[in-house]
Design a protein around this nucleic acid. Sequence first.
DNA 1: GTACGGGAAGTGAGCGCTAACACTGAGAAG
DNA 2: CTTCTCAGTGTTAGCGCTCACTTCCCGTAC
Lengths: 344, 344
Amino acid sequence: MEDPTVTSTVVREPAMTDVARLAGVSHQTVSRVLNSHPNVREQTRLRVLAAVKELGYRPNRAARALVTGRSQLIGVIAQNSTLYGPSSLLAAFEISAALQGFAVSVHRVHELGQSSITAAVERHRDERVAGIVAIAPTASANEALAEVPAEVPLVTIDGDPERHAPMVSVDQEEGAYQATRHLLEAGHETVWHISGPPDWFDAAGRIRGWRRALQEAGAEVPPISTGDWTAASGYRAGQMLARMPEVTAVFAANDHQALGALRAMTERGRSVPEEVSIVGFDDVPEAPYYSPPLTTVRQDFAAVANATLHLLLRLMNEGSTGGSQVVIAPELVRRASVQSPTRG
Amino acid sequence: MEDPTVTSTVVREPAMTDVARLAGVSHQTVSRVLNSHPNVREQTRLRVLAAVKELGYRPNRAARALVTGRSQLIGVIAQNSTLYGPSSLLAAFEISAALQGFAVSVHRVHELGQSSITAAVERHRDERVAGIVAIAPTASANEALAEVPAEVPLVTIDGDPERHAPMVSVDQEEGAYQATRHLLEAGHETVWHISGPPDWFDAAGRIRGWRRALQEAGAEVPPISTGDWTAASGYRAGQMLARMPEVTAVFAANDHQALGALRAMTERGRSVPEEVSIVGFDDVPEAPYYSPPLTTVRQDFAAVANATLHLLLRLMNEGSTGGSQVVIAPELVRRASVQSPTRG
DNA sequence: GTACGGGAAGTGAGCGCTAACACTGAGAAG
DNA sequence: CTTCTCAGTGTTAGCGCTCACTTCCCGTAC
């Protein structure tokens, strides 16, 4: 039989008062040391730190969050997808945030409808996150975000540029413009486009850039094939385009659609780039190994993530930054999928 | 001039007591309603719910976490990568967790060394997460995890099977075995392997499966080309293999490496599948659109995510489940990159 | 000498919640 | 009619922190 008073002693994690007792100071001094406040004698500071280490003390962030009303947590809303762009972005953001000492709480929504976005925002606010980042590439998502009270620090990625709110995005229009110009300059009479889902701002921006380049060059603007970012949709679009002999240049709204189109062309015996040139968008790591290696437009996701975090940090500290929007420039990457058309 | 007592009133978020006051009950009753405790009269319940709605009350999870010692948060440790496997897994897990009402806090580590894993665990424990999931595909990561105190609910994905701990993984060896058998049955004398990084358990398992299939068939076990999961490394390995006429069948440890090898073969004029057959692993969404469409092994990440969550939930509720390990079976997906060798 | 200033601490309250316990009243059991 | 039970509710005490305030002490100015 053991001593009941001993067995009943719950093994409690050390709290700030335990550290204080060991260091021979008050809990307030421990708090000051841990939050690197000034006005603590160096000698005291070291004594506290030693006690922290000895006890293996771990500050309770829940308690801190309770009293300050803010946790050191950034809430991210992303969609349920393994699309290259959004998931690269997410990974990059998590890295950036960790570097600044923030943990990241991710909430995936299955669809970008208003209600699920709103629910995700609510969930994050329950958690008393310090700020929210939303990857909101569609209009419906942006409508939901517009309803979020202004006091919630919120930065949108790839959102509606018309919404006057803190936002970071890649200049899709510019990227698409460059891609299309590149094909035009290679000598193609016009460029066909396999777009992304039209309710995505990215897709719309790429369409605008493509169209602007064609119009500036006085080229015909052919009908658009609409895809859904998947290789499968690019393949279906490619099957159509492959049948039309006048198609010599295709700009796909992302690399995976470009791959699908490539495959369709190959199957139909239209060689790329000899007969048909193709340009993608994203520069996925595999793009150099497609057959042929894909010319594409690179987006700098790390830069987007960084800009997002810094915008959010400013928002959290200063309350408001107006509707500052950051736009990151994309970059054309030339590989082997573009060539001058063989004159009939 | 306004009444100073009014102007000094800070706009505070409604707390449980505010709801209680409005509903004419005690805050404890509100708590009971919100946590769906029994022994609350239906009529009272409705009154409370109405008050909650009217005030837009949002329970403070930090306060709850403080008193219960646990948040409704699951901490995930993943590596800094956009590798298809890990990121699909992560996305799938976030979905599963959200379905069960858990938020997910993700911590990305840049390397899988002991110190960074330990730091990530500590960070999550600070946060008082209810449980931790670690995607820990290397030995060093597993060593760090072995140090985690047993009272922390922890489930490892793709970890060291030798470590007697709750773990979920895909049967890599079986998948590789099937892939290799498939090539052997097509008539190839032996199968060359482009492996993943050897310190990854997945890579090691695939090597074992490949070797077992060869040995069972009495085939020669050729030297391994080691890759790092990227298409670039597959390409480099492929450049070697393409120069060796005796190479007619290649099993790449993932689809991206397979793509790189494919590219190298094509560049060297060795047609796939006519001269060389290739099998990958993962079944990335783009695999059907490679040239040729890639035969590969599919991993069911949603099943892994689900199993992980349920194991973790059991661990959280029951304290221990022994070292239960769940293994998910992979599935061979036949496409066009495998063919019988052309007899010289 | 007294007064003052400010660095270096400590004290007490309270953030919003849950757990434990106390209480109430109505119906069942004796 | 008392006693018991138990559903339904209230009361109280913290959880572990930070914030606002107070206290102490020493150096300097007058």
